[in-house]
Structure formats: structure tokens, C-alpha cells
Design a protein around this nucleic acid. Sequence first.
DNA 1: TGGGCTACCTTACGATGTAAGGTAGCTCCT
DNA 2: AGGAGCTACCTTACATCGTAAGGTAGCCCA
Lengths: 213, 213
Amino acid sequence: MRKAEREPLNRERVLTTAVTIADRDGIAAVTMRRLGAELGVEAMSLYYHLRGKDALLDGVAETLIEEVLAAVARAGGEGEWRAVLRARFLAAREVMLRHRWGPGVLNSRTTVPLGVLRYYDSIIAVMRDAGFSYRIAHRALHAFGSMPLGFVQEVFSPSADEGTDMSAVADLVPHLVAMVTSEAHDADLGWCDSQVEFEFTLDLLLDGLDRAR
Amino acid sequence: MRKAEREPLNRERVLTTAVTIADRDGIAAVTMRRLGAELGVEAMSLYYHLRGKDALLDGVAETLIEEVLAAVARAGGEGEWRAVLRARFLAAREVMLRHRWGPGVLNSRTTVPLGVLRYYDSIIAVMRDAGFSYRIAHRALHAFGSMPLGFVQEVFSPSADEGTDMSAVADLVPHLVAMVTSEAHDADLGWCDSQVEFEFTLDLLLDGLDRAR
DNA sequence: TGGGCTACCTTACGATGTAAGGTAGCTCCT
DNA sequence: AGGAGCTACCTTACATCGTAAGGTAGCCCA
């Protein structure tokens, strides 16, 4: 094939294609061969644009963060500090809901993407403006954990209740069963609507920090 | 080799050996062949005791939870609810510090180990005794996230500051740099002593929940 | 004209999980 | 006593993965 007949590859196009594959078939489907095939290219050709699989995933994480930053920017920065951070974190959450593999990829990276640092910097700015010390701002970042990025460490998988036959172990976990029966009847989006839980936790932290100021 | 000359394998021995390998060389070193070798057996022999790699990791998670449950039990259950939960979560944390691969393995599982359910059940019991409704207890579990199991979702890796050359991007993240310089001089165990942060976040949540009661 | 660069390809290797199908030794039944 | 059947392990083989090593076609510039 003549060279001009095909749009040449570049890092960005490789990364966005990787994101597309991950969205469609999960992060495990992002293999070098599959990615190459999707781009009409052999697997080894990717190595001209990326050092290897690890660098690819770093790039995917970077791309994801960039999307978060864009969403956060749209969420605006004016108003009371709690409202500002709340809006940002919820904006980030929407991005993560579009990319379910996001938390896993971010967790697997050993180096922090620069975009994350820039984002955290902006959070510190908001807290400083609201009168927080650096010490509390620092602890706030830890307290937030991954909430700025729109997810929490869920030990229960989203379908935990489906995966485990509760009735089979009811006597082992009586309080859990009682809680589920007590709560299940009036949840809007079924048992464990995690959006509600996310916001509850977020407000708990924000209010607590406000008192610590 | 005569059959009686070697202690026969069983699920438990396979799992504890897997834990040992993970402790020594990381979770990635736990391969079927390596695990077999460590047990003086071929890789395929493991399939008699476990359905496959996935079942192996499920079992490893289960083993880990059992260790958490034992530590939690030793932490005791008498006293004010906040003190009880605090002691439990910190006990769990010690287990996770012994097994750094723990959070990753737990996150990778799709089904919740029964031990986790039993543990959560005991937490609900504590909160009910303290006068919480099931609704708040439920939200509390979400708010705690992975803290009962002794870890938080750290977006920064423990060595984030080493991995990234802060001075090279100082102008991109001025508040972050200011925070680090302001905080670094009086941290006992270096910048980001996460034990302190863990307890800070924990107390923030416990106090907030106490007000929500 | 030809050297050198860019962007891609070919081939090959070692690691990994595991399907398929043995086999030695023991127990138990008749 | 002898054979059936079970337990616990082994042998072989294959597909898939990341990637090292070394091409090669087309283009630019001297």
C-alpha cells in the first residue's frame, strides 16, 4: 500500500482507539494485537509510537484524566467551596461511569499522571481560598481518596447481591439480611443505588472538613 | 515416588503457599507453574484442587479475609461504637500492611468472599447496638468504603513524589508544591505518612456518622 | 544517485493459562 | 485373588500474550 493512502498512526490516535476498545469489550480486550488490528496495522508497529504495553496503559490513564479535567472545567469554579468540590467530583464521576475500566487502570499505574497532579492542585486552590491550612488540605486529599476522580473503593461489586445467594447464608449474616430487607423496599434504583451513597459519603466528608477548618 | 512419601496436596496448603509467594515476590509471581514448583508438583496437578487461576485468586482473597477476621476478633468488641470500629479497622489495616497485594486482589474479584459478608454483618451489629437505623448503617458501610478492610483507594502511589519530578512541573501545580513545602518539614515519617491520614479520615467519618445518628 | 530517516512489517521466543488424556497406587467388593 | 474404580498426580500440546531483533518500502535532501 502506498504510504499516503493511509492516515499515519500517532500516539493520540492509538490511545483513543485503546479507550474505544476498553469501552466496548473491557480493558482485558486491549491487547497489542487487537489494538493493531483495530488500526489496520500489525502489533509491532505500535512500538514505534509507544514503548510497550505499560506505556500504553499509562497513556490510556492520561487520556482518561484529560477527559476528567475537561468535565471538571465545565462544572465551573465559582461559589462556596463545598458546592464547588461537590460539583467537580460528581462531574468526574460521570466520566468514570462512561469508562467502567477507569478505576482499575488508574489503580494499576505506578506513576501518577500529570493531569491528576494538576487536578489536585486546583482542589488545593479551592480549599486555600476557603481558608483551609495546607495541613488540613493535605489531609482532605487523603480523606477524599478517589472521590475527586469519581469513584470509591467498592468492596461489594455492583452485583454483589446477585452473585451471592443470601438465603443460603442467612444465618451467618443475620444483621446483613435484616438490613437488606429493611432497606430494599424503598430504594429508588434498587438496593444499593451507589449514586446516592457516593453523594452521602461526599457530604459527610465535606461537612466534617468544614468543621475542621 | 511412593504416594506416602509426600504430604498430599489440598486446597488450603495450595492457598497458603500462594499467599507466601505473593508476600515474597508480588502477586504477579503467583503463576500456576511457579505455585506448583513451590509445592513440588506440576502445574496441572493444581487443577485437581482448584478449578483454575480465577478460583485460586478467589481462594487467596478468602484466605486473606480469614486473617483479617482473626485480627478483628482479637481487637475486641466492647466499648463505645466508634472505639470498637476504629480498633477493628486499624487491626484490619495491619493485616493489609503485611500483604500489600491484598487491595489489588480484593478489587480484582467479582464475587464477594463470604468472610467479607460476615465481617460486614458484625459491623452492622455494632452500629445497631449504638442506635443507628439500618438506613444509616447501610450508608455508613458505603461511606467506609474499604476502610473496614484496612485500606483506602490511594490515587497517589506510596512513592508518588519519588516517581514524579516535582521541580520540573512546579509552575503547573503551584499549590501542590506550596503544600508539600509547607507540610514536609514536620511530618514524623516523611511526607504523606498514610497511617496518620488513614486515622484522620476514619475519625472524620465516624464523627460525621455519629452526628447523623 | 544514494544515504539516511520514518513508519511499518516479519519472524521468532518465552511465558502463561488450561484442555485432553494418561497412569500409578490405593481401596473395596465379590 | 483379582479386577473395577477412585484419588492424586503427570505429560503433552495449544492458543494467546508481550516483545526482542532485524528487516524494508517510500520519502527527503545533498
